[in-house]
């Protein structure tokens, strides 16, 4: 099979840093799936932290590769915010609110993961034409970034607890960040800082909300919010 021989050559030609980057991309996807399959909120937070760490590693790699200084800064920001501060905040919230478990998800875990596979196929298919347009060396990872965003969406859809929704939201942000990085080597610094600030504020506001929601309904289960519908 000449084509397979040719392909093997291609594979070995990929430079090491890109291989590492691909590995990071795959790890991000793996972690997204691990989040989908996880019921415990504590583990979800840990997975989120690990995802942040992988993201930071990927950023560092790209920074080292391209020599773009602002990426080092953005990696540091990622570590500070997504690996250290937000997980700490979430753990604290979990302790204070006493929500260690998610209830039974809307769709059972296997079905969620199966849907996840479909989403991944869709995302990869979607990314194939984009991949050819992008000129960056990291373009293979675009499909994965899209998949991570969509998977986070899926997680937010299928979970009941407000806490897992926030985690889904953060994971989605990770995917977006990674996508931006692989398509264009990162956003301008101003945008990045703005997004980081937004995320921070969002989580803080949501944290306040949690207390309010629980105060009101004695639970963090989101189906209580359905009562707020106008039609009832």
């Amino acid at each position: 099979m000449s084509s397979s021989a040719a392909r093997e050559k291609v594979v070995t030609d990929i430079p090491l840093d890109q291989q590492l980057l691909n590995a990071c991309a795959a790890l991000l996807l793996l972690l997204s799936f691990a989040m989908l399959s996880q019921r415990r909120i504590v583990s979800l937070v840990s997975l989120l932290a690990v995802q942040g760490a992988v993201l930071a590693a990927a950023t560092l790699l790209i920074a080292w590769r391209t020599g773009e200084g602002h990426l080092y800064f953005s990696a540091a920001l990622t570590i500070a915010l997504k690996v250290a501060f937000l997980p700490w905040l979430l753990h604290r919230l979990i302790r204070r609110l006493q929500v260690y478990w998610d209830t039974e998800p809307l769709l059972n875990i296997s079905a969620t993961m199966l849907t996840g596979i479909v989403i991944v196929v869709f995302a990869f298919g979607l990314a194939q034409p984009i991949t050819h347009l992008a000129s960056t060396a990291t373009r293979d990872a675009i499909g994965i970034a899209v998949a991570v965003v969509l998977l986070a969406f899926l997680m937010m859809i299928t979970r009941r607890k407000a806490m897992s929704q926030v985690i889904g939201f953060l994971s989605m942000e990770n995917g977006l960040f990674f996508g931006a990085m692989s398509a264009t080597y990162g956003m301008p610094m101003v945008v990045e800082l703005g997004v980081a600030l937004d995320v921070l504020v969002a989580v803080l506001v949501l944290g306040v909300f949690f207390f309010q929601i629980r105060e009101q309904f004695d639970s963090l289960d989101l189906h209580h919010l359905e009562r707020l519908s106008e039609r009832r």
Binding site: N22, A26, L29, L30, I117, F124, D140, A141, I144
Partner: peptide, 10 residues
């Protein structure tokens, strides 16, 4: 299965 997809893509 996901590993399969990732392999084909990356």
């Amino acid at each position: 299965v996901l590993g399969l997809l990732v392999h084909v893509l990356l």
